[in-house]
Design a binder for these strands. Structure first.
Length: 430
RNA sequence: GGAGAGGUGGCCGAGUCGGCCGAAGGCAGCCGCCUGCUAAGCGGUUACAGGGCCAAAAGCUCUGUCCAGGGUUCGAAUCCCUGCCUCUCCGCCA
């Protein structure tokens, strides 16, 4: 959520910054409502001040044994008026809020211009895609041929876009997750958290998932008809709402959190897209990275977060490239962001495996997370950042495709072997 | 699931039969003073949000905030209702 004051004081600047992202049409209406709101606020506050003075006088009069009935009657009318104005004010506040949450974040000045992902800018490449002496297969074929990736039974158990993994493949999935957590906690200083996988509507609102992305969420019905809980689409949700409503001492920043959770997504509107295998499933594991930091360090923390994610791929020796998203593709809440795309020989192209974004103060304001500056002074909103470090399922895909052998087996990257009991290759177990 | 108790400022804790309570007192923090050092002592000070005045900052002023949302009342931290959360006891249970 943008700062209303920013829109009020520098509307032209905001409009210009949002040229590629949209939402500019909302600005004039917000401004109009804001003027109306302040007019109402002034009126009702003046009445309240009047009432406070009068009530005090009534109290004194009564104590002195005098009659104050006339004044009380007058104040009863003022009270009714206040009640009506308060209701009007509440309505207008809600209207402004509803508009404000539709306005996307303004991109950082360094973000390249552009409307769509076609105008994203490649920043660097790492590693060289391997040259195969045979035609590399897509991961669903590699895993399927080994009898380890079982999409049919998953569909029977649930529906399409779910997976069952057998034996060593299941273990490899677990190994990759453990490996990533170890890298992020031991090497990069993130604190690991274990989190709820179901969260309430308030948490979804704080993190901007609701109301905008409701159709992407699985929601549950509680037995006692209690409040609706939603399955998290990423652990970014509980992780970034964790400190909602808090004021953190600056000395404790930056906070660096990581968590391994399953992610549940409806994938509505993606029919026919990436239907094969586990590339785009309703359930997948992800190791998430979240940082809370001061505005001053916000953008250097973004760079280092990208590095933290890249490190995992380097240790696994998987080729990738880093792409900076242009203004039109940077995402609703983000001010700046990078995608890391891993090379998938089965698809013969780079595909997203991590996305790292800075929300600047946009997310902090919406979630209401502030910090208390070291030398005193007013609390200010933190910068929030998040990134995948990495998506486990997609990493598994990358291993299956990049490390496949002519005989159908898959060599397990050296870094993962300690996590699979020294196993060197995936072979058919049936 | 049953029965009770409770949610006050950074923390502890007081708030009489509703009125001068943004809230006593203590602790902690900050600024001075004092003091060979330390400790103690003395004085002052320390919440957040929003609005108005002001070119702006400073400053002044108003409104709101004692878990949240409603209600009663001229007036609510104090009374009533609902929700959320915490604690104790019993039962059940992975």
């Amino acid at each position: 959520m943008l700062d209303l004051r920013l829109i009020r004081e520098r509307p032209d600047e905001v409009q210009r910054a949002l040229a590629d992202k949209g939402g500019t049409e909302l600005i004039p209406e917000i401004l109009a409502r804001d003027v109306e709101r302040r007019r109402l606020l002034k009126e009702v506050e003046d009445l309240k001040a009047q009432r406070n003075v009068a009530s005090e006088a009534i109290g004194r009069a009564k104590k002195a044994g005098q009659d104050a009935a006339a004044e009380q009657a007058r104040m009863r009318e003022v009270g009714d008026r206040i009640k009506a104005l308060d209701a009007a004010l509440k309505a207008i506040d809600e209207a402004i809020e509803a508009l404000l949450v539709q306005v996307p974040n303004v991109p950082h000045p360094s973000v390249p211009p552009g409307k769509s992902d076609e105008e994203n800018v490649e920043v660097r490449r790492w590693g060289t895609p391997r040259r195969f002496e045979f035609k590399p297969k897509p991961h669903e074929d590699v895993g399927g041929a080994l009898g380890l990736l079982d999409m049919d039974r998953a569909a029977k158990l649930a529906k399409s876009r779910f997976a069952v993994m057998w034996g060593p493949l299941a273990r490899l999935e677990r190994a990759i997750a453990q490996f990533m957590l170890d890298v992020q906690t031991r090497e990069h200083g993130y604190t690991e958290l274990w989190l709820p996988h179901l969260v309430n509507a308030d948490t979804m609102l704080r993190t901007g998932q609701l109301p905008k992305f409701e159709e992407q969420l699985f929601k549950t019905v509680e037995a006692d008809e209690g409040r609706t809980l939603y399955l998290i689409p990423t652990s970014e949700v509980p992780l970034s709402a964790l400190h909602g409503g808090e004021v953190l001492p600056e000395s404790t920043l930056p906070r660096k959190y990581t968590a391994l959770t399953p992610c549940y997504r409806r994938e509505a509107g993606t029919y026919g897209k990436d239907m094969k295998g586990i590339f785009r499933n309703h359930q997948f594991d992800k190791v998430e990275l979240v940082k809370l930091t001061t505005p001053a360090r916000g953008y250097e923390e973004l760079e280092s977060m990208v590095g933290d994610a890249e490190d995992v791929l380097q240790r696994l020796e998987l080729p990738y490239r880093v792409v900076e998203r242009c203004a039109g593709d940077v995402g609703f809440s983000a001010a700046k962001g990078y995608d890391i795309e891993v090379w998938l020989p089965g698809q013969d192209r780079y595909r997203e495996i991590s996305s790292c974004s800075s929300y600047a103060d946009f997310g902090g304001r919406r979630a209401d997370i502030r910090y208390k500056p070291e030398g005193g002074g007013k609390p200010d909103f933190v910068h929030t950042l998040n990134g995948s470090g990495l998506a486990v399922g997609r990493t598994l895909i990358a291993v299956l495709e990049n490390c496949q052998n002519a005989d159908g087996t898959v060599s397990i990257p050296a870094a993962l072997r300690p996590y699979v009991g020294g196993l060197e290759r995936l072979a058919s177990s049936r």
